[in-house]
Design a protein around this nucleic acid. Structure first.
Lengths: 117, 117
DNA sequence: TACTATAGTATCTAAAAAGAAAGTAATGAG
DNA sequence: CTCATTACTTTCTTTTTAGATACTATAGTA
């Protein structure tokens, strides 16, 4: 959580005001966001499945990033009233329209970004 | 700097192995990166100019992010042997090919990402 | 001799992001 | 009455990122 009194907070605000890409990066910038969109798209559509796919993510992080994606309306969280609980994630239409753009970005990366650090 | 002994480090590595977009995000993900590309493109091509454009960025951050962009071959740093020193930044061809993709991403954001929060 | 300009570095501290580990809730199975 | 299952939440700690501030170099100018 960001303190509204911090320089970080006001810098974020000012940057947003002058950099038109900023809000997009805010939505996609989280460490696991794009991977999550990608795997949900591939039908790893439940909490447990995503964790199996990415065993290194903690439940806390997975939960937090899914929540943000849901808040930004890229992911739908459908709860089934069953026991044990079942929750299914899927991409929104908004997220679907993003996929081709991400693919272009990916292709750019393949062409131009070296793999090593 | 990332400790090679940390969980953060190994997670980064494992994520990179399964998420094809990861390396692109590593290059573009820094807080000021895209703004910098954008302003250098608009000919704010010197350290001081960039600071004037973004008065909230510290010299340390500006310096660090420019260095990373240079390392990732998105920005060229040309030094003139003058006094006081003059250094000019410009986009590489690689960065030029990125611009249209970023524009698509930007357009997606305009259409679909809310401004608030 | 001090002062300006430019483009930074260096060191220390604050804030934010991420990881570790334990706990919660509800129900059905044994 | 304990255990398994699923999808988390909570608290605490470590790691990483970012900001604050002071400092450097060099030549020309006052």
């Amino acid at each position: 959580m960001r303190k509204t009194t911090s320089t970080n907070f006001s810098n974020e605000t000012e940057l947003a005001a002058i950099c038109p890409m900023h809000k997009v990066m805010r939505v996609l910038g989280g460490r696991w966001k794009i991977a999550l969109l990608y795997f949900i798209h591939q039908n790893y559509n439940r909490f447990g499945l995503l964790q199996k796919k990415m065993p290194f993510i903690t439940t806390k992080m997975l939960s937090a990033q899914l929540k943000e994606l849901e808040h930004d309306e890229l992911v739908i969280r459908k709860i089934y009233a069953e026991m044990p609980p079942r929750v299914e994630y899927s991409l929104t239409e908004k997220a679907q329209t993003l996929l081709p753009v991400l693919e272009d970005l990916y292709n750019w990366g393949e062409k131009f970004v070296a793999s090593e650090v």
